[in-house]
Structures are given as C-alpha cells and as structure tokens.
Design a protein around this nucleic acid. Structure first.
Length: 961
DNA sequence: TAATGGTAGGGGAGGAAAGTTACAGCATAT
DNA sequence: TAATGATATGCTGTAACATTCCTCCCCTAC
C-alpha cells in the first residue's frame, strides 16, 4: 500500500501474508479425510495450493432456509492460481461446477477483508511493523516498512478520519515540434518543452512552477526556466525533477492518452537511460498498454494505460468525458465553460516555427505550455473533481483509480462483498452469459400535450427504485422459488409474498435482504451528511460533505442497475423486472388515487387530471389558476398518496410548472416554482435547447424563444425574434461557430452512412493524427452541394470550410435545424398560423450559385464586371480596370464608396485582432491562435477574408487616375 | 481475455419498398 | 370493296420521382 503521512511523507507499506482464496461447495460425501489428498491432487495440476479447509457458509443466490452448508475454502499462494476447474475422484463434475468468489480481483479481496476503502487512513501501530533498511528498500518512498495484513488498523472515513491527505499534485503538459500538416510522431518529432506545476492538496497556489525548454527561452515572471541544448538532456532532467518532487498524484489534460505515452516512446526512441522509472518502485518501469473499454452508458472507447506504481494518475480529460455531457471536450471549450475564459490555441503545425525562432518566440510557446499545465489544476479545484472522487472511493470502497478506469458495477460489487462477508454469504462466480432479453422498464403516462396556462403540480417518488427494493425486500438473498416454498412449508403473506411480476420474495421477518441493507445504509448516511452540511460553515469541509452526499446518492441509484446488467457479474432479471413492475403499479395507482379523490363531487372546485408522468413522477392539473393553491393541493395529494404505500416509499410534492409547455413524451418546458412568490428557473427537458446534437444556433434560438414565450409571455416577440434570426442566417450574418454540429463517433463499423462518420472519414484522409477517433465527438457543418446530394456528402470539418471558403447550406439550417424544432413549440401556443408567419416566404435570401457535379466548379472563366452597373467588361465597353464606358462618370463616387467599405471591414478586423491579442496576453505580437471552439476565431477569419476581397476590389481602381 | 449499470422514447437521417407520374414505344382502331 | 397510310387511342414497360415505412443512430428522461 502506498500512502502519505499527515505531514506529507511518502510511505510504502509492504503487506505480508495475505493470500488469495476462493470457495467450492463441498460435494455430498466429501469429508475431512478427503482434504489432504484433494489438496495434493490440486497441487499436481495447479501447484501452490496452500491450504484447504471446510467452512460453513451460504450462497447469496436465493433463499434456501437459514441453514449454512459446508464449503471448501481453498487458499493459494498466488492470484493467478485461482481456478474454476478442478477434478477429484468424480466429486466435481466438469462444466457444471460453480466456484464462489473466484472472480474477485486480489486487490478488492484484500480491501474487503481488511476493511480498507479507497483513500482512507490507516494506522500501523508501533511494534507491529519493521522499517526497511537501505539494503532492503524497493522504492523511493521516504518511509518503507513491512506489516502483516491483519496487524494494521483501517479507519472508517468519518469525523477526524475524513480529512484529506496532504498529497503533492503534479500537473504537466508537453509540446512537441511536429511537421506541417502531420500529427506529431514520437519516432520522429522531438519533445521541445515540458511545463510542470506542483501543488499541495488543499492549497490554492502551486509551490513549484517551471518549464523545461529545448534551447534558450526568455524570462517568464513567476516561473523557473530550465533550458537544454539536447533533447536527451531535457528528458532526463525532467525525469529527475519528477523523482525529486515525488508527487502522489499526476494530473493533466489527456496525459494518459497523449503526453505520457509520447514521452515514454520518445525517450525510448532517443535512448534516454532510465526514463521509464516514473513510479515509486525502483525495479518496475512504466510501460504503455492499449486498452479498450465499452459500456452502455458511455459507449466504446480506445485508450492507453501507463503504470506508474505508487502515484495516482488523474487525467482531467477522462474525468470530464465521464462526468459531464458536453458538446466538445477540448481544453479550450471546457475552460471556457467552467472557468469562463478562452485560451489561445496554437495549431500544432505552428509550434515548430516558434521553436526554431528566437528566445522570445520560444517564450511564447512556454507561456502557452504553462497555461496548459495550469488549467487542469484550476479545473480540478473549481469542479472539486479530486474531492468528489475521493469521497466516491470512500463510500463505495474501491481504489481511487477504479473510478476512472472501471464502470459502475465494480462499485456495487465492492459494497455487496463487504456486506455479504459480514453475514456469511458467498457470491457465486457466474459463467459469462450475455443474454439479449430485455426486461420491461418503467411506464411513461401518455401525455396530454399542449400549452398550459394554469399551474401544473409535479409529484415525485423520492429514490423510487431504492425505496421499492427496501420496502419489498428485493434481493438475491430473498428470492425464493416454489420448490423451496413447499419444502420449507412457508405461508403466503406471512413468510413470503408474490410480487406483481409473479416472482416470490421472503418477508424481512424471515430474512432481511443484503441489497436493502446496503440501500438503507446509503440513504440514511446521505440524510446524516445533509444534516451535517447544514451546520458546517468551513467551505472546504462543506465541499467534502457535499461530494459525499452526491456519491451516496449516485451509489444508491446504481444498485438497481446492477442485477439488470446483462454483461454483469451477477445478472438477475427477476430482481430488476420485479422492481420496475412495482414502479409501474405505483405510478398507475398514484394517477387513480389523485384523479378519484380530487373531484367536484368530492367538494373540490375542479376535477384534477394527470396530464403526464414518467417513471416516478406525475404532473397534475388541479384546476386552480394560482400557484399557492396548486402547491397546497400538491403537498396534500403527495401525503394522501404516500399512505397507500409501504414504508419507506414516499411521494413528495416537489415543484409547480407555470406556465407549462408539454410537447411530447420526455419533451417539455416550463417555469419552475418551488415557492409561491417567485419562479426558480426556466426548466426544459429533452427539447433541442438541452441537446448536444444540433448546432448552437438552434439550441440558443430555442432557448430565447422559450424565454420569451414562458417568462415574458410574449409569443409575438418570440416570433419577431425568430424572424430576425432567419434573416441573419439567410444573409450569411451568422458565425460559423454557431452552425457547428457535434456528434459522438460511437463505433467503427456503421451500417448506414452518417454525416458525422463521413466527415470524420474525410478528416482522417487529410491528417490521420488529428482526426477524431472512436469515442470522440466529431464537429461538422453542412455545406451546399449538388441537388439531391445526401447530407452525409455535405458534412464538412468547420476548419476546412473556413480555410477554403466553402458556402454553407443555409437552407438546411433553416429547414432542418430551425424550422422543424421551432414549429413544434410554436404550434401549441399559436396554433396553425405559426407556420406561415415564420417560414412562409424568405424572399430576402441571398442566392448563391449551387456548385455543379462533385461540389467543385470545374471550368470557371472569371469575367470581370463593371463595378457600377455589373455589366460584363470586354475590350469594347471597358473604360478602365473598374468600370464600363457608361459608368465612367461615376468612377469617383464608386471609388469613395469602395474605400469606405474597405476601411469599415479593416476596422472590424483590427478590433477582432486586438481582442485576440488581449486573450494571448500580448499586444505587440502576431496572433497565432486557431481555437476552433472560440467564436472570435471564426469571426476574425471571416472578416480577414472580407478585407482581402475588398482590397482586391479596390486595387482595380489602380491606374485609373 | 476481461470488462462492460438499466429501459423508454423522441427525432433526424438513410435506405428499401411500394406507389405515382411521365413518357416512349408499340399495337390496334379508326 | 380491299388495301394502304395517316392518325388517334390505348396499353405497357420503364425511368424518374415522391412518399411511406422501417431501421439505425444519437441523445435524453428517469
């Protein structure tokens, strides 16, 4: 175990004598005399079986009475020796044998048995350990010791033991000098700079800030600069720096997939001695491994993995991808969103130029590099990533690095094993069985769509699935089949009950399920933490507590998904389908109770109607037109409904929507009220304004329209707004950045052609290194094409479109991105007249010639036209380079007009240029930024082209006078 | 090999299939 | 009156086009 003391000294504790083991059910007739020969027999095949003993345990699978049965606990000397096959005197028939707890990782096994959870404090009592001497040391840690696995104390992370450790965190970024148009290749392209920041956990300023540069570099305030003439020296010096700093945590942005592998491959290519000794173990070097992960929630993803023993790796890029749903995950976009600042983005082809320039140009690069090292640290602080993950590791009990590298299941398994061990249950190692059969999920009440001017109350079941599982004691350990029922002579409704799904579970009086116990523990712990949070004033402790309650909530919710996971460790469709069946019954019951009770004939002023509901919520139109009454009725109804259900199931009144626009199932918007005097926010669900797969123009327009309709209650104003946007679009006054559509490249082999897939394919052809890979998000815009050309043929990389000045298909954006979604929300409010009002005629559209076959104008004869009357200029009518004979007299006027136009765009351009200079922090240097996530960049490039065109036009007046 | 939370549902786009229309080509009637 | 040619009519196959329905795909709600 690696760790740190309270004072910040690094520790390596060698844990001794902990051996892996697994279980086999003892077959009938197997007795004590068989143990030794059986062990000898197994040793022949496996070797290294240390001991076998008979223990009384019970399986977690199904209720089979309270009797424990004999199991063989087989202890082996090495994790690899755990087997699922054994054969001895016909006792263990091949194929049918089920082993228990044989598929549990050794690390988790150890942590469960010693009550160690990820990121917790451990005390090694005096006298129980032996310090290692300089001869026996195996690591670079300051303290190194040996301790038996059962002689240290693991502290539950509560009270004084919930403090964060004073970990040293290194954040770094590298720059390499690539060749033009090609993504850097570690076999060829050198590493030229490495920027590093070192911060102590909990402090807001780094105590080391430096940059290693190849060749000299001018002074940077507040940072150390270490320059080297040889790349090999640079790499070697940085490795030594890392060893001296001895960080506990290494962070960065995409360091796992880019920076670390690049450094290692480059050092290898240049033959830098000992570079791969990045970890704390002296005899183990770091190597790169390709891994593939796939999950239903986050899709497929290819990535790399580096082992740096004794140091945690925490790649903020991976964290963002896992925890946030964003349009783009570039460091630019993420910093802009969460830190509120754009950063300069130097295209990789320009880096070499800066490197080959002067100390000052290398200084620019160094500043850029330092910023890229600083931003991950700031993101981590701002978003509390490290604190939240620490709490998640503590709550679920898994090692910290599992949280990024593994899925949801391992967290539930960890909790399940801990609880199971306490109660003497064993978990079977199920044979992998990928079943395709889906079970039935939740009900979505068919919506009565429309625009509601009266307040709509929303009632929710809090933590629905967890509370169902607790209320009805649904668990592996409580499932029971008919045979067992008759064998044990159990009585319906006394000992067990039949669920709506037709399955049977024993009552808690007979046996309380393990899953319900885990869930109760999680829910009550969350309640306690929330109570503590109310009294806590220290902002840092508050953050820890908040992270903890969040972790508890997420953990409780993922318990339900675990038995339903078809590719799982312990799939059990009965548990999942029973839980959802109760849920369906409850939502139906809620609807009928509310609608039966709140009726005019029962003395109420209106008949209440349930207009919509999804899984655990119902939306009720009680009738009254004021929020306060609606809230009172809602709270009352929630209370009434709750009495119909088993504890701890609880229906809560949560909020009122007023007004409320119900578009379809899972698609609605409304003003969200929790108190009668003021609304909290505009809440939109499922609509284009909250989706990532349409362009910003579409979502922002919809957001504005919703605001005008619901907040300002001004549908006419909304109409006018849309008309303005449409006009801007057709006149090409919308930034390209607003039109970028992003979608995830989810897999390799697509059945049908898709716009984002085809665009990614074209990008790959141009530069394979920088093209989006599997799991990345692809950005594209739709350009004009030949008639009937498919959308996938017209999807193009925005940078490419910008560089080559390819015309945008405004009609596509108008019809597919704006009109269709907007009509869906206008129609319920305005009725059928909306259509004509908005999209009837767009005569103002600028007609741009449609390119012919293949998207390229093949034979273009450029003919000059008169700047006055646009007539074609030829040898007969040409007065001068600018105008025809007819317009000759207007030449001075035309000249003035074009001069004015030119200077106007020049002013616009210089303003944008200055803005970019401000952003890069220097007003007397060229702007190199090509940040594709920054709207200014697009605007600047567009205006730049306008300036060029305008100047070219003006030059036709040259020699007129 | 190891590892991978669930189902319900909207909506855009592609693509096959079935339907429509226009038209050439031919046979037949006038 | 029969044979012949011109024209109109009707049928049919085919290509082009528009529509419908289904599937794939992405993303979201819960």
């Amino acid at each position: 175990m690696f760790g740190t003391t309270r004072e910040g000294f690094s520790v390596l504790a060698h844990i001794t004598d902990f051996l892996p083991y697994f279980y086999l059910p003892a077959p009938a007739g197997f007795v004590g005399e068989h143990l030794q020969p059986f062990q000898d027999n197994m040793n022949k095949k496996l070797g290294e079986v240390v001991s076998i003993e008979i223990v009384a345990k019970r399986t977690i699978w199904e209720y089979r009475g309270e009797d424990k049965t004999p199991f063989l606990k087989i202890t082996v000397s090495h994790p690899a020796s755990i087997s699922r096959e054994c054969n001895y005197q016909g006792f263990f028939p091949a194929g049918k044998l089920v082993t228990y707890e044989s598929n549990v990782g050794y690390i988790l096994r150890f942590m469960v048995d010693t009550h160690v959870v990820g990121m917790n404090w451990v005390t090694v009592p005096a006298g129980k350990y032996k310090l290692r001497t300089s001869q026996t040391r195996r690591s670079s840690c300051q303290i190194e010791l040996d301790v038996r696995w059962d002689e240290f104390i693991s502290h539950t992370p509560e009270g004084e033991w919930s403090a964060m450790a004073p970990l040293r965190i290194l954040s770094f970024d590298i720059e390499c000098a690539g060749r033009k148009g090609i993504f850097p290749d570690p076999q060829v392209d050198p590493v030229i700079q490495i920027a590093s920041l070192v911060t102590k956990q909990g402090e807001d300023k780094p105590f080391i800030r430096n940059v290693f540069t190849l060749k000299s570099c001018s002074y940077i305030a507040g940072s150390d600069i270490l320059s080297f003439n040889e790349e090999v020296e640079l790499l070697s010096a940085w490795r030594n720096f890392l060893g001296t700093v001895d960080p506990d945590v290494i962070i960065g942005y995409n360091t796992t997939n880019f920076d670390l592998p690049y450094l290692l491959k480059r050092a290898n290519a240049r033959g830098v001695q000992g570079f791969n000794k990045l970890g704390r173990l002296l005899h183990i070097g770091t190597s790169v491994k390709e891994v593939h992960s796939s999950s239903r929630a986050s899709g497929d993803r290819d990535s790399k993995e580096c082992n740096i023993n004794g140091r945690l790796q925490f790649d903020i890029f991976q964290y963002m991808q896992k925890e946030y749903k964003l349009r783009t995950y570039s460091l630019n976009a993420v910093s802009a969103k969460f830190l509120g600042e754009q950063k300069e983005d130097v295209h990789h082809s320009i880096i070499s130029e800066l490197q080959n320039g002067t100390p000052d140009s290398r200084r620019r690069l160094a500043i850029y590099c330092l910023k890229d090292a600083y931003l991950p640290q700031r993101l981590m602080d701002k978003l509390m990533c490290f604190v939240n993950y620490t709490e998640m590791a503590r709550v679920t009990g898994v090692p910290f690095n599992f949280l990024l590298s593994r899925g949801q299941q391992i967290k539930v398994i960890s909790q399940l094993m801990r609880r199971a061990k306490e109660d003497g249950y064993l978990i079977p190692a199920m044979k992998e069985q990928s079943s395709d059969d889906q079970y039935e999920g939740a009900t979505v009440i068919p919506p009565t769509t429309g625009y509601y001017k009266d307040p709509i109350a929303t009632l929710d079941f809090s933590s629905m699935y967890p509370s169902i599982m607790i209320a009805h004691n649904i668990c592996y350990t409580t499932m029971i089949n008919r045979a067992t029922i008759s064998r044990l002579r159990l009585v319906l409704d006394v000992d067990y009950k039949q669920t709506p799904q037709g399955t049977f579970f024993v009552n808690p009086t007979r046996r309380k399920g393990v899953l319900p116990i885990i869930l109760e523990h999680l829910l009550s712990a969350r309640k306690r933490v929330k109570a503590d949070l109310k009294n806590e004033t220290d902002p840092f402790k508050r953050a820890v507590l908040d992270g903890r309650q969040l972790a508890l909530k997420i953990s409780a919710n993922s318990v339900y998904g675990f038995p339903g996971a078809s590719f799982g460790h312990l799939p059990c469709t009965d548990i999942s389908s029973t839980t959802t069946a109760y849920g369906r019954e409850m939502i139906a019951k809620t609807k009928s109770v509310v609608e039966d009770h709140y009726r005019i004939e029962n003395g109420f002023e209106h008949d209440a109607r349930v207009i919509y509901g999804d899984t655990d919520s119902v939306m009720v139109d009680f009738g009254p037109s004021d929020v306060a009454t609606c809230m009172r009725l809602g709270a009352e109804a929630a209370h009434l409904v709750t009495t119909h259900f088993v504890d701890p199931v609880k229906l809560e009144f949560e909020k009122v929507y007023w007004p409320y626009l119900l578009v379809n199932k899972k698609r609605y918007a409304g003003l969200y009220w929790t108190k009668p005097d003021k609304y909290d926010k505009l809440d939109a669900k499922g609509l284009e304004s909250v989706r990532r797969d349409n362009c910003c123009l579409a979502s922002e327009t919809m957001d504005k329209v919703l605001n005008k309709m619901l907040v300002e209650r001004d549908p006419e104003g909304a109409l006018a707004y849309v008309k303005k946007i449409v006009n801007n679009l057709l006149q090409d006054r919308i930034d390209l950045s607003q039109l970028v559509i992003t979608k995830t490249l989810a897999k390799m082999d697509y059945v049908s052609k898709q716009p984002h897939v085809e665009s990614a394919r074209r990008m790959k052809k141009r530069d394979a290194g920088s093209a989006p890979g599997i799991g990345d998000r692809v950005a594209y815009v739709i350009v004009r094409g030949t008639k009937n050309a498919r959308v996938y043929d017209r999807a193009e990389d925005p940078s490419y479109v910008l560089e080559h000045n390819i015309p945008i298909d405004t009609e596509y954006y108008l019809n597919n991105q704006l009109a269709t979604p907007l009509m869906r929300i206008f129609e319920p409010v305005l009725g059928a007249r909306a259509q004509g009002l908005l999209f009837g005629n767009h005569a103002n559209s600028m007609k741009i010639a449609t390119p012919t076959e293949g998207g390229i104008v093949t034979y273009v004869v450029k003919k000059q036209r008169c700047l006055g009357c646009k007539t074609e200029l030829n040898s007969r009518n040409m007065q001068n380079g600018a105008v025809c004979t007819n317009c000759a007299s207007k030449t001075p006027d035309l000249y003035l007009k074009h001069t004015a136009a030119t200077s106007k765009v020049q002013v616009a351009f210089s303003r944008l240029w200055t803005q970019c200079q401000h952003c890069q922090g220097s007003l007397h240097q060229d702007v190199l930024c090509s940040n594709r996530d920054c709207p200014i960049f697009y605007r600047r490039t567009k205006v730049q082209r306008e300036v060029e065109d305008s100047v070219a036009l003006l030059s036709r007046f040259d020699g007129v006078w």
